[in-house]
Design a protein around this nucleic acid. Structure first.
Length: 347
DNA sequence: AATGCGTGGAC
DNA sequence: TGTCCAAGCAT
């Protein structure tokens, strides 16, 4: 069955592979390792549709890993704004600089694994897709397809070992990169989380989950914990008027929530608790509205208030940013919403 | 091992 | 509306 699965899947892939910007065109040589790596980092927990415009922007601005290595941190963070999971962008720059220093990407899984932001999955994916090595590539698609194919009923994450072993057993020595991408395409288009279009599946006849009648029920997952709700405040401090109007932006600490990103000053809200409502500068404040935003692990209701005075003098690190170019500041979505609230309110 | 870490789309 | 989900990684 092992050889049957991989050959059937590869045959299917030859006719049904998705056309994606980071893939080599059919008949082309292996894709550029830089583009493979960049796409894999962007694609973590992120849909191909969301990634596509960011991938285009990044490869246009920084066509090579050397170019990215030479970029300023804040430019990369701003370009990443809106894509989420900002530690990916911080590690992206670090890894690019390490690779440039080494003179190119390492080609083995073990060496790739040492770069910041490359875990088991990405190291295996880059080794297989960009360098043609046999590597066992296990992402959420592969977990789902394998759990169904072998009717693995132990719940995740405990079933990871068994799933990985089963994936290892069907990974071919040749074309391991195509095999991995084929598994992901199958998981993305046919064997999806809410559906299993078994009649379209090239592995229909080998699938134990289908034979047992309930492929969609697999893999079994532990129930998620309820998300807490928090409240907080963001502070809009401005100077000037009209075309010269500017707003005070801070840079968030390098680690933690929205780490390294430009932001409005806030009152210290976090997943652990509500904000203090303490303003960063004294004075009267006028409410502009409320922004609701769902993070991975908590929901936030953030009030946005505007400093009523003309000449606030913020203390600490920060910068005055032209309000008419606020879209270029690279604010994460939460603060972009807050900014839109204020700007729309005054126009 | 469990938790922290974004965002937008599908249903 | 709420809930789940999407090419995971770091600690």
């Amino acid at each position: 069955m092992t050889a049957t699965v991989s050959s059937k899947l590869l045959d299917w892939y030859d006719g049904h592979a998705r056309s994606l910007p980071w893939r080599a065109r059919p008949g082309e040589a292996a894709p550029d390792p830089y583009r493979v790596w960049l796409s894999e980092v962007m694609l973590q927990q992120t849909t191909t549709a969301a990634v596509a415009p960011y991938f285009a922007k990044f490869t246009e601005t920084w066509p090579t890993v050397e170019a990215l290595a030479a970029a300023a941190d804040e430019d990369v963070m701003a370009a990443w704004a809106g894509l989420g999971y900002y530690s990916r962008a911080r590690n992206l720059v670090k890894a690019a600089r390490a690779v440039a220093e080494m003179g190119g990407f390492p080609e083995t899984e073990a060496e790739l694994r040492k770069l910041p932001g490359l875990g088991e999955y990405i190291a295996a994916a880059v080794a297989a897709i960009a360098f043609g090595q046999r590597a066992v590539v296990v992402d959420a698609n592969v977990e789902r397809v394998v759990a169904r194919l072998f009717a693995i009923r132990d719940p995740l994450p405990g079933a990871r070992k068994a799933i990985r072993a089963a994936a290892d057993g069907i990974t071919p020595d040749e074309r391991a990169g195509d095999f991995a991408q084929a598994m992901m395409d199958l998981g993305a288009t046919i064997c999806t989380a809410r559906d299993a279009k078994c009649l379209l599946c090239p592995l229909m006849d080998e699938c134990k989950g289908r034979a047992e009648g309930d492929p969609v029920a697999l893999p079994v997952k532990a129930k998620k914990k309820a998300k807490p709700s928090r409240t907080g405040t963001a502070f809009w401090i401005q100077r000037g008027e009209g075309d010269t109007r500017e707003v005070w932006l801070v840079k968030r600490p390098g680690k933690g929530m929205l780490g390294g990103m430009r932001a409005l000053p806030d009152d210290g809200w976090s997943s652990r608790g509500d904000g203090s409502e303490d303003a960063p500068v004294p004075g009267a404040w006028k409410a502009a509205g409320v922004v609701r935003h769902g993070f991975t692990h908590f929901d936030l209701e953030m009030g946005v208030v505007i400093h009523a005075g003309e000449n606030a003098k913020p203390v600490g690190e920060g910068e005055w940013w032209p309000v008419d170019r606020i879209e270029d500041a690279g604010l994460p979505t939460l603060f972009a919403k807050a900014a839109r609230l204020v700007v729309a309110d005054r126009e």
